[in-house]
């Protein structure tokens, strides 16, 4: 058993090192996230009350778009230099290696998004309940996006259409977006957000169990 944990850590460390060494992807996605957030007040104007109402929704939509952009990096570099073949033909189950890579992607792209969106929440003077709700929904939501997205990336890596990946991911990430924004609106009205949190946690558990299997199968199909 320890052998598997060991290889999980090795792949995790490798991907974090790679992300740390070549920081451009990491920084670009965060800058994109902040830019998209600032777009909304530009369009709605700051004085009107609309902006305060939809700030949490805005942050969530920008987080979704930023994640969609950064998902490609999970397999792109491995696909180009051929190490995906080594991973597929290694003695360890591909599902384990793939979940290590997805976890690494979530750490490099998901966590900074959460931290920065909390900062933006404070910056844009949201109330405490909303910030807590935002935090809970992002903590549960971004891993789901990484997991679902990794399946779609494994299906479409190396294909011609660039937009195909987003076309596949967005419909599937709508439930996550709906439950998160509904939770935040409930928080704004000081109602409890337990129901939506349970739902998001349920989807997260479903994604954790099924997504690595699907990604491994998709990779084997993509390489064959």
């Amino acid at each position: 058993m320890s052998e598997y944990i060991n290889i999980f850590n090795v792949i995790l460390k490798r991907d974090l090192m790679l992300a740390f060494r070549d920081k451009t992807d990491f920084i670009n996605s965060l800058i994109f996230f902040i830019i998209v957030i600032t777009l909304f007040p530009l369009t709605f104007g700051t004085k009107s009350t609309i902006v305060n109402e939809i700030i949490p929704g805005m942050i969530w939509i920008s987080a979704l778009l930023a994640t969609c952009l950064s998902l490609e990096t999970i397999f792109r570099s491995d696909f180009e230099d051929g190490s995906i073949e080594q991973l597929t033909l290694s003695r360890y189950p591909l599902t384990l290696l793939v979940s290590a890579k997805i976890f690494a992607h979530w750490i490099t792209f998901g966590m900074p998004l959460i931290i920065i969106s909390l900062l933006m929440g404070i910056l844009l003077s949201l109330s405490n309940e909303i910030i807590i709700a935002l935090f809970i929904t992002l903590i549960l939501g971004t891993p789901i996006l990484s997991l679902l997205g990794s399946v779609m990336v494994a299906l479409t890596i190396g294909l011609r259409g660039g937009m195909l990946l987003n076309l596949l991911i967005l419909p599937l990430s709508m439930p996550v977006l709906i439950f998160s924004t509904v939770a935040i609106q409930n928080a704004a009205l000081n109602q409890s957000i337990i129901a939506e949190t349970y739902f998001l946690a349920g989807i997260l558990v479903l994604a954790i169990t099924l997504a690595p299997l699907a990604t491994a199968a998709a990779l084997r199909i993509r390489l064959s």
Binding site: M17, L18, R21, E80, G82, E85, Q86
Partner: peptide, 10 residues
Amino acid sequence: GHTNAIKATL
């Protein structure tokens, strides 16, 4: 394979 599966930035 043809590609030698090593990471450039390592």
